Simulated scan of single mutants.
Amino acid sequence: MSSVLLYLHGFNSSPGSAKARQMADWLAEHRPDIEVLIPAQPNTPAAAWAAIAQSIEAAQARHGDGLRLGAVGSSLGGFMATRVSERYGCRAALINPAVRPYELLQDFLGPQTNPYTHERYELLPRHMDELRALAVPVTVPERLWVLQQQEDEVLDYRKALSEYSFARLSLECGGDHSFVGFERYPAQIVHFLGL
């Protein structure tokens, strides 16, 4: 069996984000046997999903039937990781996940600049339709672990508690959208994912 951890960054982020690097660094030191995939997702939803699916399909081609996949997603990446879990039948850890991002991101329509890549683009109403089309119902909540901090300044943590009410949940007081103290979790996440 070959283990692959797929890390999905959030909106206007990149593979260079702090949590992505912390996860990759921990794996390099403690579990170098796990292949880490951190795809650079395009800034629009349908293109981002296509890049994610392509990364998974390439891993499937490399490893064949021996692939054991687990996903980690932060914010909008948590929304995408939920889709990965449902489509590919794997476990996923969701960090301050975005719930119904097609509603949340209505406030961000218009010109955008990704602070990591400096790429400029425009977020349009059709991108909200793309997000809506990517939403999936959670059918196997025990495959999901939601890590949530109450003082997330971007997302209302109560929406995640409602959306993922039957999933495993770790709710912390304080914190913020970056998930303060994430470095405490990589070992537990890898164990939960079964990698």
Rank of each mutant, 00 (worst) to 15 (best):
I34H: 02
E35I: 12
P39A: 09
A40P: 03
A40K: 05
P42T: 03
A46K: 03
A46Q: 01
A47R: 11
A48S: 10
I52E: 05
A53K: 06
A53H: 05
Q54M: 12
S55M: 04
S55N: 12
A58M: 13
Q60T: 07
A61M: 10
G64H: 02
G64W: 06
D65R: 07
G70L: 01
A71N: 05
A71H: 04
G73Q: 03
G73W: 00
S75D: 03
S75Q: 08
A81N: 04
T82P: 03
R83F: 01
R87Y: 01
Y88K: 11
C90Y: 06
C90T: 11
A92I: 11
A93K: 08
A93C: 11
A93M: 06
L94A: 09
I95A: 01
I95Y: 02
N96Q: 10
P97Q: 09
P97I: 04
A98M: 00
V99N: 03
P101Q: 00
E103K: 14
L105C: 11
Q106A: 15
L109K: 09
P111G: 14
Q112C: 05
Q112H: 06
Q112S: 07
T113H: 05
Y116N: 13
Y116Q: 02
T117P: 04
T117G: 02
H118Q: 15
E119K: 08
E119G: 07
E119P: 07
R120S: 06
R120V: 12
Y121M: 09
L123I: 09
L123W: 06
L124T: 14
R126V: 06
H127L: 01
H127F: 11
M128W: 07
E130K: 00
L131M: 14
R132C: 14
A133S: 10
L134R: 05
A135F: 11
P137K: 10
V138Q: 01
V138C: 05
V138L: 04
V140L: 07
P141E: 03
E142I: 07
L144H: 09
L144W: 05
Q148G: 05
Q149P: 13
E151N: 14
E153K: 11
Y157M: 11
R158W: 00
R158V: 02
K159I: 00
A160F: 07
L161D: 12
L161V: 14
S162Q: 15
S162H: 13
Y164S: 00
Y164V: 07
F166D: 15
A167Q: 08
R168F: 08
L169F: 07
L171Y: 03
G174Q: 10
G174R: 01
G174C: 05
D176L: 04
